[in-house]
C-alpha cells in the first residue's frame, strides 16, 4: 500500500482516487476520493454512501464551489500539476481560514520535500510525496525553519504580534 505523511508521521494510505466514471455503480467500496466533476454530477448518491468520502480539487478549481458541502468530506485533496504551481497554497489557506474546514487537506501530484514546510503553513496536513522520492527524507522538511514572519494556519498571529 502507498505511504503518506499525515500530521508529520508516515502512515499507510487507505484512500483510493476515482476521477472518471460512467455511472455511480462503478464507485468502489471503502475510502474514496472523487473528482469535483463526479461530486457535482452524483452528489446525492455520494451523500448516501456509508464509507468516508473525499474530494479532489484541481489547481484551478476553487474551494468556493464546495463551501456548502464541506461536512461531506473527510479529506480534501488538492492537486499540484507541477511543484512550482502555487495555486494549491491559496486553496488550502482559504479552506482553513475562510471556510474553517477541520478535516484532512492533502497535497497530491508533484509533491516534493522542499515545498512541504510552506504547504503545512497553508493548512495541508497530509502529503502524498511523489513516489520516486524518499518519504522518510521528506519528513526532514518540517524542521527547515523554527519561526516565520507571517500569520499562518498554524500560528494565527504574525511574528509582530507574538
Amino acid at each position: 500500500m502507498k505511504k503518506l505523511i499525515k500530521n508529520r508521521e508516515i502512515i499507510e494510505d487507505t484512500w483510493s482516487t476515482v476521477e472518471d466514471i460512467d455511472s455511480p455503480s462503478e464507485l468502489p467500496k471503502g475510502n474514496i476520493i472523487v473528482s469535483l466533476a463526479i461530486w457535482q454530477q452524483y452528489a446525492e448518491t455520494l451523500k448516501n454512501r456509508e464509507d468516508p468520502l473525499g474530494i479532489l480539487l484541481a489547481s484551478d478549481e476553487e474551494p468556493e464551489v464546495i463551501k456548502n458541502d464541506l461536512d461531506q468530506f473527510a479529506v480534501i485533496a488538492i492537486h499540484f500539476p507541477k511543484f512550482a504551481d502555487g495555486r494549491g497554497y491559496t486553496s488550502a489557506r482559504e479552506l482553513r481560514t475562510y471556510f474553517n474546514y477541520q478535516g484532512e487537506i492533502r497535497a497530491v501530484g508533484d509533491v516534493l520535500r522542499d515545498q512541504l514546510f510552506q504547504m503545512e503553513r497553508c493548512g495541508f496536513n497530509s502529503f502524498a510525496v511523489r513516489e520516486d522520492r524518499s518519504i522518510e527524507d521528506a519528513l526532514n522538511a518540517f524542521n527547515d525553519f523554527s519561526l516565520a514572519y507571517q500569520a499562518d494556519t498554524k500560528n494565527p498571529q504574525p511574528l509582530f504580534r507574538r
Partner: peptide
C-alpha cells in the same frame, strides 16, 4: 520573506 502562500507565483 518566505511567505507561505506566495512562494510559487
Amino acid at each position: 520573506t518566505l511567505h507561505p502562500e506566495f512562494s510559487m507565483l
